[in-house]
Design a protein around this nucleic acid. Structure first.
Lengths: 219, 219
DNA sequence: TTTTGCATAAATGTATACAAATATAAAAAT
DNA sequence: ATTTTTATATTTGTATACATTTATGCAAAA
């Protein structure tokens, strides 16, 4: 098999199990157990662990072993803070290159996002598709990759959160406004809408996470 | 052995060999050859490769094998662009927390940077120590880590570049101005100096890299 | 009862060996 | 001569086996 690229079946299955919360958070994971779980030897498990650690899905647990790092509101806050600055930046570079065809595709994705029966994971994936489509036009591979990494990190946090209908409507309205501003080549407006949009999403998530830790961590 | 944390001797030796240009750029590296070079089996070599790939020191070469990615001016440009936005951001968060002691340490580092006999690697390391000292005070681990990663990526590019004495003087003057602004708690000024400082460093590097590819790539 | 030391057990790191996949070269056909 | 096919060699991916390190539990001493 073409094994351990981000595309290895073990890597994918492992990551999905982390995302879906099917593995314990904060406790050390044993290589042997993981090998049994996925029906392979420890070597490919080690390879996958290395990669997932580098991507932030796993963290060192003491001197030995790895764990799924617990959710941390401050971490989420930082991720959204960075997105607030980097995404308007890449959007600026993207706008001059956006074709009518791409804008049409973006419009299509927006319509799919109107479906309020989507679960948080599906919604998150579609949402990223929309933004990614716009950002890729900037033709800035390294900048794009960093932003994609930030989204990947954020993806670990959403999916727990059940979004209110009210928030979903606001978010969608902003998406439409953003696309309109882009069509008008009004870069300044587009940037400010996007920054606001990310800021709100961040606040929503951080508030949710802080609520969680308040109810859970009772000494 | 405590093997493959970023601290494994193999990982360190391997990365240093890449940084120092002791391994061929752009051609596939054979696991067997690397294993022989470092006197170990292929397993730890594979572990190190995984990690270095995730950190950007190595890249996929076609379907099989890895290579040291060639230097790319556009990539460097993106890295500095991101730093221009993220470093002033973290500095803003850091300034309220900076103690007199930390500012004193920063002053010390600045004096060491006056030494113009340093080679590019030493200079780069000291320069990062100075900035890192300030940034850590922000107590924003995730934001800090991302910025540190960007610097690590940049480190692959500098070290080839021989900095002009003129640039070194300008750069040091900016460092002093920055520290003064921070002492005055003049956040606005500090941010603008820092952004300018990074912008100049980026332009210097990108110009150098473009010069390189112009002279090398003759069909 | 608490703490220190040691013995045992568990888990990770590495080497060797083998299987699968890809690239290379040579031979055959057009 | 060029292209396609086939066989060979090289290289990577994985499993098993062993060495090394860290954790755990028990006993003895304070």
């Amino acid at each position: 098999m073409s094994a351990n690229q981000p595309g290895s079946s073990l890597y994918k299955a492992f990551k999905q199990d982390i995302q879906a919360g099917r593995l314990p958070v904060g406790t050390p994971l044993k290589q042997t157990e993981l090998a049994q779980r996925y029906g392979v030897s420890r070597i490919p498990v080690r390879d996958a662990i290395k990669q997932l650690m580098a991507e932030g899905w796993l963290a060192q647990h003491g001197k030995r072993g790895v764990m799924i790092p617990p959710l941390d509101p401050t971490e989420a806050e930082d991720l959204y803070l960075m997105r607030m600055y980097l995404e308007p930046l890449i959007l600026t570079h993207a706008i001059p290159h956006l074709s009518h065809q791409t804008l049409g595709q973006a419009q299509d994705l927006l319509q799919q996002l109107d479906d309020t029966t989507l679960d948080p994971h599906q919604h998150g994936a579609l949402n990223w598709s929309f933004h990614a489509l716009l950002y890729q036009a900037a033709q800035r591979p390294v900048l794009y990759q960093t932003i994609a990494d930030l989204h990947r990190q954020c993806a670990r946090y959403i999916g727990y959160q059940s979004l209110t209908l009210d928030y979903l409507h606001t978010s969608q309205a902003e998406h439409h406004d953003l696309l309109d501003a882009i069509r008008d080549k009004n870069t300044r407006l587009a940037k400010s809408i996007l920054k606001q949009h990310i800021s709100e999403a961040g606040e929503q998530l951080v508030a949710y996470l802080r609520g969680l830790s308040d109810t859970v961590a009772q000494p």
